[in-house]
Design a protein around this nucleic acid. Structure first.
Lengths: 144, 144
DNA sequence: ATGTATGCAAAACATTTGCACCTGG
DNA sequence: CCAGGTGCAAATGTTTTGCATACAT
């Protein structure tokens, strides 16, 4: 659970908007939110806020390693708290729900592939798009 | 090697801009091009062309399965001819060069992961970002 | 002919930036 | 107090769309 100390460690003043955004990302039911999602959540909780600030703060948090930005298909970026352990994502094309997973075998093979190509891997992302379980079973997902 | 027949099969008239774009994508030295790349290439070969048309045609080609669109990091989409066989990508963050690879073990694990989660996979993308061999060896890549 | 495509300009988005005002330490 | 942060509005960059004209069949 991050707090104002983590912000200071990152060289960022513990301002109200930043603390608020941190809280939203930590307590969100959906761990993966767009900048707009965060912005709306701030407004909803009666907070003065500008969308530009949300973007600025999220970008700073990303640089500080506090959050991770993902570019899934569909144009808008989504952000999630960085929990320290790498994982990949499955995204439901029906309800947009995001599922996390980690497969050591895949991670290992990726390392090998990069190495064999003389490639210095900095980061990697694996996205699986499809239809989630809820959609299959009930004809629709939570969101749709 | 696709031609006007493939366009007709896709329900698209064999117009000059479409044939030209098809040719550019097939013969490009760099298999992965942005819409702007294609547009500039058309102008360079003395073709009347609008960027909007390039986007429209590429989108139609994608829908027809003729080309594949990728959303790498960095905002702009890149397109490549669909050669029929799925592959993943390594992108050099220095020179933007794109390398293709295919690892059966990874493909297999992905299928398993999705299956175990009750997920009906429609597509998947694996992107490795890092520094390519040329960059490591010569201090710079072709493009930079 | 005639339904489609095209080019241009304007619109639509997501995201970033300039700037005057505000605020945390 | 004062550097850094914020909100707002305007700018940016990419992709999409409306519309009158041009083209393939």
């Amino acid at each position: 659970m991050k707090d104002s100390n983590d912000l200071k460690k990152a060289g960022l003043k513990a301002t109200l908007p930043r603390l608020k955004i941190l809280g939203i990302l930590e307590n969100a039911k959906t761990r993966h939110m767009t900048a707009e999602d965060v912005y709306k959540s701030m407004l909803a909780s009666g907070e003065e806020a500008g969308l530009a600030t949300v973007y600025r703060v999220l970008t700073q948090f990303e640089a500080a390693g506090l959050v991770i930005r993902h570019n899934f298909e569909g144009g808008r970026a989504v952000f999630e708290m960085n929990q320290g352990h790498h994982h990949d994502h499955m995204v439901c094309v029906e309800c947009n729900k995001v599922f996390e997973f980690n497969d050591p075998a895949i991670e290992d093979r990726q390392r090998r592939v990069a190495e064999k190509a003389g490639f210095v891997m900095e980061e990697h992302s694996l996205h699986i798009y499809g239809m989630c379980d809820g959609m299959k079973k009930h004809g629709k997902c939570s969101k749709k």
